[in-house]
């Protein structure tokens, strides 16, 4: 049984890698013309395995509502801060949910929070990019916790700091691709990262401040729900 499962997982992984490789080969063939459409296809493909996994899982009503509620909380945290670029508790809530409930939940919360907050803030071509970025933020947080790399608070702060910048850089890529400038060079990417440095630093520092001040209280609230109702073990 166990062996069969691993086998299936391997096949799925290989299929995913092959399809991504095929698309990358196509994009090389199409040279620098169709970066934007290819990037969309890749983004959507990268999210599908998570959804398939979620569809297959046997979840009870409590767990479904809990994930939806966490996503809504992360999304609502973003709305009142919309006027202040890159200052928001969403990243913090996404990381905390991943720490408490695991990597899959982390991905779903980040992903859904981006999707539904944009229903209120404005949907656009940036939505899939934010979905993947926040999703991966939650996923990596849960994954690093699983391999016991997130035990001390300093590491958590460092993680939040790094993702503040990573998130900004992924968004820069979106802007560069969307403007479809004919020469996307390393120099251009670097200059866009320098231009957005202030916003990324805000995001990173904001994550660190939240981690320092509220990490324990959040973990307490989340673990309480988890223990009390025995959810998402």
């Amino acid at each position: 049984m166990q062996g069969g499962k691993i086998h299936k997982g391997k096949i799925r992984l290989m299929l995913t890698i092959t399809s991504i490789a095929v698309i990358l080969m196509f994009s090389v063939y199409a040279a620098d013309k169709f970066l934007m459409p290819v990037s969309f296809v890749l983004l959507i493909l990268s999210m599908i395995p998570f959804y398939l996994e979620f569809e297959k899982k046997e979840l009870n009503a409590e767990e479904m509502v809990l994930i939806a509620m966490l996503s809504a909380l992360a999304a609502v945290g973003r709305v009142p801060f919309a006027a202040l670029p890159s200052i928001q508790p969403t990243s913090f809530i996404v990381i905390m949910s991943a720490m408490a409930f695991g990597k899959e939940v982390g991905f779903l919360v980040g992903n859904t929070a981006a999707l539904i907050s944009n229903i209120f803030l404005g949907q656009g071509p940036w939505t899939p990019w934010q979905m993947v970025s926040w999703g991966m933020m939650g996923f990596t947080a849960g994954w690093l916790k699983d391999v016991n790399l997130m035990e001390s608070k300093h590491r958590l702060c460092f993680f939040g700091f790094v993702w503040g910048f990573l998130f900004g850089w992924m968004m820069n890529l979106w802007v560069l691709l969307f403007f479809q400038l004919s020469d996307i060079s390393w120099k251009l990417i670097l200059s866009s990262c320098i231009a957005s440095f202030k916003f990324d630093l805000n995001h990173a520092l904001c994550n660190v401040v939240f981690m320092l001040l509220f990490h324990e209280r959040f973990m307490k609230v989340f673990s309480r729900i988890k223990e009390k109702y025995g959810l998402l073990k």
């Binding site: 979620f54 939806a68 509620m69 809504a72 909380l73 999304a75 609502v76 779903l108 209120f120």
Partner: peptide
Amino acid sequence: IFPKTAFMCMMAMRFVPVLRKRS
């Protein structure tokens, strides 16, 4: 295509106005 995911998103969408009012 993804019934469970869509259901979850729908619920989360409905929670947003509730949470705003509550906050």
